[in-house]
Every structure is written in C-alpha cells, then in structure tokens.
Design a protein around this nucleic acid. Structure first.
Length: 428
RNA sequence: GGAGAGGUGGCCGAGUGGUCGAAGGCGCAGCACUGGAAAUGCUGUAUAGGGGCAACUCUAUCGAGGGUUCGAAUCCCUCCCUCUCCGCCA
C-alpha cells in the first residue's frame, strides 16, 4: 500500500511512477476523498473534544454537590446528547470515506525503485549476469525435455494425477519423489547455514494475511479459497512469513530477520490455459523454498543484492547455468519495487526459464501489514524482501535436462549426492 | 465439540461508572553519586491520526465490533483468542 500522505502531498509522483509501470491513472477523485476524510476528521475530533469537556464538567458539578437532575446538569446532558448525535453522523461518513480510500489504495501497486530500468514489456528486461555454460546438443544428439525424461524414468505420474485432483497437478513417484525431498532438504540446509532461520508455517492463510502481502484484494482469482472458512491455500510462503510479524514493532537491533521457509504453493493459474501444460513448469501445486528478509530501510538495497546472491548460490551449487534478469518497470510484480529474476538454462527446451524471483518490496508490504521497527524513540516501517531459493519442481526439471546422458540416465550434481543417496537417476 | 476461567502499556500487575492513557513493580534510557562499577536516588519511557515552524495540543485505542450513559478499562450484547478440565483425534 502506498502512503496516504504521499497521495496528499505529492500525487504527481504516484502518477508518474506508476506511469512507469504502464498505468495511466487519474488520482483527482481519490485525492478529493482523502481531503474530505481529513476535513471530517478535524470536525469530528473537535466535536469530541467539546463532548469530553462537557462530560468532565458534569462529573465535577455532581461531585461538587449539584443535583444530578437539576437544570444545570440537565442542560449539559442535552448538549452532550446533541454532540453525540452529530459525532455519530460524521463518524459514519468518515468511515465510508476511509473504506473507499483504503480500498483504492490497496489496489495500487508499489512504486518502482529509482534504479529500475524503464520499459514497456518484458522484452525490455535487462540481463545483468550470466553464469555457467549453457549445454547445447552435440552433433547428432537430441536433448529431451524434462517431462520426457521424467516419464521415461517413471519419476512422475500425470494422467493419474488428474484422477486424484485435476490437470496441472502432478504425483511424484519413486526416485522423483525422493529427488524432490532431497532438493528441499538441500536448499533448506544451504540457507540455514547462512543464517536463515527455518520456518514451516501454516499453508492455509486468512484474508488479512493475503492482503498484507499484496495478493488481495486485487488478485483473488489467482488463489484457491476454502469455501466454508476465511482461509486460502497460500500461493507462496511470502504470505505466511510476512504475516509472521504482522502488526509488530521490532526493535531495530533485532534486524535483519532472515527466514527460509519451505511450503507447497497453490496457484489457480487463471488465464494460462495451454501454456506449459506438460511437466513440472506450471502447476496448481508446487513446492518452493522461499527466502524472506525483514530489514531496516537503510539496509534494503544491500539486502536485495544479498538475497539474490543467496538464491544464485543454489543454482551454482547444483551446477545449473543461469542468467540474472533485472525486471523493467513494466514487468514488476504488484508488491515489488525492484526485482531480479533468475532464469535457469533448460537445454531440452533450449531456453532460459524463470526459477526464482528476488524482490524488494520497500515498505509496501510493511505498511499493509503494519510491521514497524523501533529505533530510539521513533518507529518506522521496515522493508521486506523475498526471493525463491528455489522453486523445487523447476529445479528438478533443470537437473533432468542438464544432467541427461546419452545412455538415458541423468547425472546429478555432486552436492546432491548426500541428500539423494546416488549420483545418477536411472531407469528402474 | 462440552464445562469453567481469563484477555489491561515492552513484560508483570492494580483498577467494577467520572479529572484513568491507566497505580505499583520489572525492564529500558538519561542524570546524580563513584576512581570505575554495583547498589541507591531523581527524571523520563505506548501506538496511530489531525493541527502547529516549534514548544505543544486535539482525537482515538485497556482482545474486536456493537449498545447503554452527559461520561465506559469498568455495565449489556455478539464475536475472536488464550488457559484448565472432559470428549475426539494424527
């Protein structure tokens, strides 16, 4: 959520910065609402002050011996009643305006950071780094896509998963299930060794949590909802981890708080029919290890570099070639002020595919979630950052495609051996 | 799910209709004392919003929302949560 004061004092900045995202907006209506709300607040609170004064006067009159039903006291009572009625009217109106204001503000995305390159679409994203040498098919060699390898090796079951749930769900079996588990443990251990505190949060989350991290109210159709409860299947661990500290004031000396959370993630993927229908790339349910920082605003730029490096370290440890992309202003997610995407090389598909997204959300989520820090006498909003470290299913896909060998087996990186218990995936 | 108890500031804890944003204690900060420290003493110490250059000031907040009242932490209603016991359960 954007600062109401910014709306009041510098709406042009909001218009121009959100313009960088490709939005055209007219804030005059909203500004008017904000102004009216403020005027009403002034009127209401001075009325209340008058009411409080009368209340005290009645108290001291009675204490001083005045007849509780005498004319003097009666007169004040009537005055008090009148004020009460006026206040009630103003409060009602004010509530309406505040709700409207909040609703509108909740629908506006974060402002892009100054450093974010301007752009009109994802085509304008900027590659900032490349690591590893992307594997190309040798002469006469045909590289398979991960779903082909997975099916051939019996790592997963798609047809039967439809029986269990519906399309875009997958059941991992045998070595596939074991590899998924190995990857989760590997990632958690790697990050845990770097000072991240491990979290295993609820994966059903309430509406307030989804609002706090930015998924609601605008993206309700993207998440699965439980019909009879105010609970949703979390689309990312970012949601529960943000709400881990919702409403809190954190002493500055405790920052940064760094968490690593493994959760299944659930997304409706509305509007992506037909895209990535095979394999592990786009599922309604997938596993993800998420990195999350709560930091002092002064540290957030450096923290963004670090969280990105921590995500990159997973790919490097797994010997997976990747590139790092800085998203342009038009491609930023709703809550993000600045984002680096990591794209892993998939030799079978012959393309780089997103496997991690590392964002700084500045104070956007902190304001929605009321997460502040206390430093000396004052408080201020913290900054929050999140990064996938990594999406587990896509990591498996990358391992399959990058490790495939001419005999049909898949060589796994050495770092995984202690977790998986073998260096190769072979047909069984 | 049933029965009972309870939710007050960073923490503990008093407060059952009036000047209570809230005693007292702990913690924390500053000052004094000290060679330095401990102990001690004094002072200060919630959050949000509004007004003001500022000093300061107004409003709201004692789990949440409503109600009664001139006035509510205190009375009434609804809901949420925690604890204890019982039941059920991986």
């Amino acid at each position: 959520m954007l600062d109401q004061r910014l709306l009041r004092d510098n709406p042009e900045r909001i218009v121009s910065q959100l313009g960088r995202r490709g939005m055209t907006l007219d804030l005059t209506g909203l500004q008017l609402v904000a102004q009216q709300a403020r005027t009403l607040e002034e009127q209401r609170s001075s009325l209340q002050a008058e009411g409080n004064r009368i209340g005290k006067e009645v108290g001291s009159l009675i204490k001083g011996g005045a007849a509780p039903n005498g004319p003097e006291v009666q007169g004040l009572r009537e005055q008090g009643n009148r004020i009460k009625q006026q206040v009630a009217v103003l409060e009602e109106e004010e509530k309406g305006l505040d709700a409207k204001l909040r609703e509108q503000l909740l629908g506006l995305p974060n402002l892009p950071a100054a450093e974010v390159p301007d752009g009109r679409s994802e085509a304008d994203n900027v590659e900032v780094k490349r690591w590893g040498s992307p594997r190309q098919a040798a002469a006469g060699e045909t590289l398979e896509e991960h779903w082909q390898i997975a099916e051939r090796l019996g790592l997963l079951e798609t047809e039967r998963s439809v029986r269990i749930a519906q399309s875009r769900f997958v059941t991992l079996l045998g070595q596939g299930a074991r590899l998924e588990r190995a990857l989760i443990n590997f990632m958690l251990d790697l990050h845990g060794g770097k000072g991240y505190r491990e979290v295993l949060p609820p994966i059903l989350v309430n509406s307030a949590s989804l609002t706090g991290s930015g998924q609601l109210p605008k993206f309700a159709e993207e998440s699965f909802r439980c019909a009879d409860d105010d609970l949703w299947l979390t689309p990312t661990a970012e949601v529960p981890v943000t709400s881990l500290h919702r409403g809190e004031v954190i002493p500055a000396d405790q920052l940064p708080l760094k968490y690593v959370a493994f959760t299944p993630c659930f997304r409706r993927e509305a509007g992506s029919y037909g895209r990535d229908t095979r394999g592990l790339i786009r599922l309604h349910q997938f596993n993800k290890v998420e990195l999350y920082w709560f930091v002092h605003p002064e540290q957030s730029a450096e923290a963004h570099r670090q969280i990105t490096a921590d995500a990159e370290a997973v790919l490097e440890a797994l010997e997976l070639p990747y590139r790092t992309i800085e998203l342009c202003s038009a491609d930023l997610g709703f809550s993000a002020a600045r984002t680096y995407d990591l794209e892993v090389w998939l030799p079978g598909a012959g393309a780089y595919r997103e496997i991690s997204s590392c964002s700084t959300c500045s104070d956007f989520q902190a304001r929605r979630s009321a997460i502040r820090l206390k430093e000396g006498k004052g408080t201020q909003l913290v900054h929050t950052l999140n990064g996938s470290g990594l999406a587990v299913g896509r990591t498996m896909a990358a391992l399959l495609e990058n490790g495939q060998q001419s005999d049909g087996s898949v060589r796994l990186p050495a770092a995984l051996a202690p977790y998986f218990g073998a260096e190769c995936l072979t047909a069984t």
